[in-house]
Computed example of a mutant assay.
Amino acid sequence: MTQQIVERYGDGVFNHAVLTEDERLSALTQELDPASFGRLGSLPFRSDWRCLELGAGTGTVARWLADRCPQGSVIATDLDLQLVQSRHEEQANLSWLHHDLTRDDFPPGSFDLIHARYLFCHLRSREHDLSRVLGWLAPGGWLLLEEPASFPIESSLHDAYRQTSMGVFTTLAERIGTDCRWPRTLHEHLNRAGFTEVEVDVTYSVVGGGRPMSRFWELTVDQLAPDLREVEGITSPMITETLARLRDPEFRDLGMATIAAWGRRPGSTA
């Protein structure tokens, strides 16, 4: 029997070798970093924390964590590290690790903080993977998850933008298993796992007018255009109109929301 090959994020779609992928992820980083740093900064940091950054992307969050924990350590992981290795200098307490979250483990209780952004929604085995990650936290350790949500786009009054953008989620669901409705459950996952001090937050993005999220979404739609033309109800003129609106300095609409949830594993770090 021939084994079916299942596509993952980065195998084909969003591969780091795509010429515009660095720019696409850099635009997303510019959009998301201020809120991420604010949420992380609200935690009761200690300078000796052991931190894990899952899905390092362009490496800005890992670098921020390393600066906050000079007596601690940060391990930043990704399936493809070329975007971080090409732009960041070496730092004694920061290491980059090629790591597949769905297959590779860490010993139980290894970390005082685990952060992941825009990662679990792209994993077909996200429920199982999240349960494993929870075990990597030390008693009293913190978990912060930030994931994209599609609901603001679903209510857009701009038909071409709405249908084309929702086609992005359909395409990603079919190709790599992405689910941008799943993040609405983050809070409940932490509650069911017995975490304490659980909080939830949401931030909204605006597209148009040269904003970072607009550029990120433009490059996303452009990269997926061949697949989008195969989605029922989406035409080439609709894709062209959407790209034009995203570049239009006068256009304004909502982009994806970011849902964040964080909490503390029961127990004491002392």
Rank of each mutant, 00 (worst) to 15 (best):
I176M: 11
D159E: 15
F111M: 00
G233T: 01
E174N: 13
G12A: 12
A62G: 08
R87H: 04
T178F: 08
S36N: 08
G109T: 07
G135H: 12
E250P: 15
F45S: 11
T240I: 14
A225E: 06
L113H: 00
V200Q: 13
S268W: 15
P34D: 06
R211L: 08
R215H: 03
D112Y: 02
T77I: 04
R126L: 10
A261V: 05
L186F: 00
R192G: 05
S125Y: 15
I234L: 06
P237E: 04
L81D: 05
Q163G: 07
L40C: 01
D222R: 12
R87A: 06
F216K: 01
D22P: 05
H189S: 07
R50A: 08
L54E: 10
W96C: 03
T171R: 01
L43I: 14
L186Y: 00
G41S: 06
S205Q: 07
P107C: 01
A92L: 05
R8F: 12
Y9M: 07
L190T: 03
T258H: 10
L32G: 12
H128K: 15
E174G: 15
N93Y: 08
H189C: 07
S73G: 09
W182Q: 07
P148I: 13
F169W: 14
F169Q: 12
T77R: 00
D159A: 12
H16D: 09
Q163K: 12
S125H: 14
R252L: 04
L83M: 02
R247G: 09
W262N: 06
T20L: 02
A56H: 06
S47L: 13
A17W: 07
R264C: 13
V18K: 09
I153L: 01
P237D: 05
S86R: 12
E197T: 10
G10I: 03
